[in-house]
């Protein structure tokens, strides 16, 4: 336990970062430019790394610093760079009209946030650092799923999946004192990297074959 920082300040910092993650998520829901969406995801990951850094500093836990470094390298720099390059190479700038328009999307996400707080409420009584972030974590997962359903560009679906993953990682920080064991964090990290690369390959092939990245055109297999 590190005495240089009081638990009170640490808890407030974590709550602040968590709320910022949620704000970024809502911006993502109403964002149409693909490159901006990728940047928003990078910003959200910075806040996730910030939360992990506060936890690591407060508990003096070495292995959580590794998680911070991995998040910064992987989710803030590498994955956004990878997606950015792909979007530029395919020369697609804008998402087509989502299935549900933006004001309605915002309302639905507001509802999902309420739902997240309702689900998390029974578990927020436990005394632990950053415990109040569980509601945000569940909301991130729910709105991530909504984003995935609502958009038709393959790249946006990949981004939505990544925000869901951010939500799960936030839940890990919110519910446990030190985060998950290092070997598990490493496994998750590399899986996410490989997943995005493979999704990238698939998106590329879909684009080549269908001359479009619109996944609603993938509708031949039925029954």
């Amino acid at each position: 336990m590190n005495p240089a920082i009081s638990p009170d300040i640490a808890a407030q910092l974590i709550a602040l970062f968590a709320v910022l993650m949620l704000v970024v998520q809502l911006l993502l829901v109403v964002q149409r430019m693909l490159l901006t969406s990728i940047r928003l995801f990078a910003i959200q990951s910075v806040f996730l790394a910030g939360i992990a850094a506060v936890v690591a500093y407060f508990h003096g836990a070495f292995h959580v610093y590794v998680v911070v470094a991995l998040t910064l390298v992987g989710k803030v720099v590498f994955l956004p760079w990878l997606l950015d390059r792909q979007v530029r190479r395919m020369n697609i700038i804008q998402e087509i009209e989502p299935l549900v328009n933006f004001p309605t999307s915002m309302l639905i996400c507001g509802g999902l946030t309420l739902l997240g707080y309702l689900v998390a409420r029974p578990f927020t009584s436990l005394e632990r650092l950053g415990n109040n972030t569980l509601a945000v974590a569940i909301t991130l997962v729910l709105t991530g799923f909504f984003l995935m359903i609502n958009r038709r560009k393959a790249i946006t679906q990949v981004l939505a999946l990544l925000t869901v993953e951010n939500g799960v990682m936030l839940a890990a920080v919110a519910l446990t004192t030190y985060g998950m064991p290092l070997v598990v964090e490493l496994g998750i990290f590399f899986d996410v990297l490989v997943a995005v690369m493979i999704l990238g390959i698939l998106v590329y092939r879909i684009r080549e074959t269908f001359a479009s990245m619109d996944v609603s055109k993938l509708s031949q297999l039925k029954g």
Binding site: V141, F145, E165, L202, T209
Partner: peptide, 22 residues
């Protein structure tokens, strides 16, 4: 096989699988 249908099958597999695994 990189056919239209196999890409569709693979995309559904990976998206549903990823949501499930999340």
């Amino acid at each position: 096989y990189n056919r239209r249908t196999s890409l569709e099958g693979a995309w559904k597999y990976v998206m549903l699988g990823s949501v499930g695994l999340a």
